[in-house]
């Protein structure tokens, strides 16, 4: 079976630059890292691979050429193969166009074989939408379980524990093919080893680059053309200045604070 792990390269925190005209991230100007939750998604794929005989792990991402580095990181950790979906025609994709693009690449990869699992990070640290995982599952017509805090595979049954509101957990089972998105609690991602890194960087054949033509993409559904949402504005919110300083003895301050919290129905 194949485990496909969808990963994303994101800007390193706190260095983000935004194009004031288009409202898009200026990716070229920002140091890029592998989305932190995707490390957990890769780790899950690798742990399943190590517990069975028949698993091939394939990391896939859509992005500019520099996104290769995110795939090399996945290969360094132990993924078997990597696919970079890169084409100027994919530029400006929203989550819908991205999901479509990933899903047809996965269809091409699987070639009518249904024996697969897709793992994703629950969301990316830049957009924070959490759309792409479940949307890829919709495009492929397979079940998806989001926000896993535990996940395992028994035969072809995926067993997932996920958090609900108020600290409650629920367990969900589904048969493959399926997609799961993971949170930080699901595992502890391994670091790449020196052997893993040299293998990933020196074996060029492990990484393939596919463009719109390779995956036979419908040009109406990719890039700007395929995007149903447009970012109208992106900005850093102004902090609302409403500081109140309470004075008096500790006892007085405490009682003022308590009555204010009551007033606002916080307690």
């Amino acid at each position: 079976m194949k485990i496909i792990t969808c990963i994303k390269q994101v800007p390193a925190n706190s260095t983000i630059k935004i194009d004031q005209v288009t409202g898009h991230l200026v990716r070229e100007a920002t140091p890029a890292i592998l989305n932190p939750l995707d490390k957990h998604s890769i780790e899950l794929a690798l742990e399943i691979k190590e517990s069975r005989e028949d698993v091939e792990v394939i990391a896939i991402t859509m992005g500019p050429d520099q996104a290769r580095l995110a795939l090399l990181e996945a290969l360094s950790m132990g993924a078997d193969k990597a696919i970079l979906l890169s084409d100027i025609k994919f530029a400006g994709s929203d989550t819908l166009a991205t999901s479509y693009t990933l899903s047809i690449a996965i269809k091409k990869l699987m070639n009518d074989d249904d024996n697969y699992l897709i793992t994703c990070g629950a969301q990316a640290s830049d957009g924070e939408t959490g759309h792409v995982g479940p949307q890829v599952a919709e495009e492929l017509g397979i079940p998806s379980i989001t926000g896993a805090s535990r996940a395992s595979l028994d035969g072809d049954v995926l067993l997932v524990t996920r958090g609900k509101q108020a600290g409650k957990l629920e367990q969900i089972k589904t048969r493959l093919p399926a997609l799961v998105t993971v949170t930080k609690g699901v595992n502890k991602p391994r670091l790449p080893t020196l052997h893993g890194i040299t293998h990933a960087f020196d074996e060029g054949a492990l990484l393939s680059v596919w463009n719109a033509a390779t995956i036979d993409a419908d040009e109406e559904k990719i890039g700007m053309a395929g995007s149903k949402t447009k970012v109208s504005k992106m900005y850093t919110p102004e902090p609302k200045k409403e500081n109140i300083t309470l004075t008096g003895s500790p006892k007085e301050i405490a009682s003022k604070l308590a009555s204010m919290l009551k007033e606002k129905n916080y307690i």
Partner: peptide, 15 residues
């Protein structure tokens, strides 16, 4: 090269 920086980052994180 990229490999050198990637090794440096990984080794630093480990250490």
């Amino acid at each position: 090269d990229e490999r050198y920086y990637f090794i440096k980052r990984t080794v630093r994180e480990f250490c």
